[in-house]
Design a protein around this nucleic acid. Structure first.
Length: 247
DNA sequence: CGCTTTTGACCTGCGC
DNA sequence: GCGCAGGTCAAAAGCG
């Protein structure tokens, strides 16, 4: 199975067939810390096997390498936008915030589109009991709002959701057809030479392919259901901080 | 030789 | 209480 290079080292400790999905789900533990509690699950989307669904759970108890911090940085930055509604200082995040608000202005504010280079992301607030149909409407709304041809380098969208506030669960989708998670700049800021173009193209990459959109909706709908069911009873994660706090 | 992956068994929570 | 499904354990195998 192709691996998403998120900057951390992982050791596989189990694999299971998930009901309703012909592809097995793999379980990984972080091996960068002696007793790091972070785990992740990786599963292919049943509707579109080119999409990998990755779920992270827990907080690292050791310093993260720059690549991992960058990964955590912009997902949690998008999350903080949802929470605060304030404009972040980064140009990339500010522009993506504008985009997100326009794209999802007609939907409940639990999904934020972040088209920051090098790849677009979607952040979901999984702590609130929104139902899946709300998200489906939001994504389909986006699909109706954007259409343009895609630059080839943007044809591998990645979508992340991150639980906010009192949960440290972090869910993502990756297209495994093209690029893996690209190397990041040394800082936590995400820059691109042509930011507005990149944002528009990345957004189109997410929304212009109806097949991908359908798979995306199905996958995230499933994720939302899983996360909510996992946390509806007892919670396994009493932590209150996101995994970029080591910055 | 040490680390990782594989895989069947076991544990646990949940719904009926 | 029982069965099912998801998650974890741990021994064996594989690999560099």
């Amino acid at each position: 199975m192709p691996q998403i290079n998120d900057g951390c080292q992982w050791r596989k400790y189990g694999q299971k067939m998930a009901k309703g999905n012909p592809c097995p789900r793999a379980y990984y533990r972080c091996t960068m810390g002696a007793s790091c509690p972070v785990r992740k699950q990786v599963q292919r989307c049943a509707e579109d096997r080119s999409i990998l669904i990755t779920t992270y759970e827990g907080n690292h108890n050791h310093p993260l390498p720059p690549a991992a911090m960058a990964t955590a940085s912009y997902t949690s930055a998008a999350a903080s936008m949802l929470l605060s509604g304030s404009m972040p200082s980064s140009d990339a995040l500010m522009n993506s915030n504008i985009l997100a608000r326009s794209a999802l202005s007609s939907s409940p504010s639990f999904a934020t589109l972040s088209a920051s280079a090098p790849f677009p992301t979607v952040t979901l607030d999984l702590t609130q009991p929104h139902n899946a149909s709300q998200f489906q409407r939001a994504v389909q709304g986006q699909y109706n709002m954007f259409s343009s041809s895609l630059p080839h380098f943007m044809s591998a969208p990645q979508v992340f959701g991150q639980a906010l506030q009192n949960q440290s669960k972090y869910v993502g989708l990756h297209s495994s057809q093209g690029i893996e998670l690209p190397p990041f700049a040394s800082s936590n800021q995400i820059h691109t030479p042509s930011l507005s173009d990149a944002i528009g193209s990345a957004t189109a990459a997410i929304t212009a392919d109806p097949n991908f959109t359908a798979a995306l909706v199905a996958a995230i709908t499933s994720i939302i259901g899983n996360v909510h069911s996992n946390h509806s009873g007892n919670s396994t994660q009493p932590t209150t901080r996101n995994n970029n706090d080591n910055n």
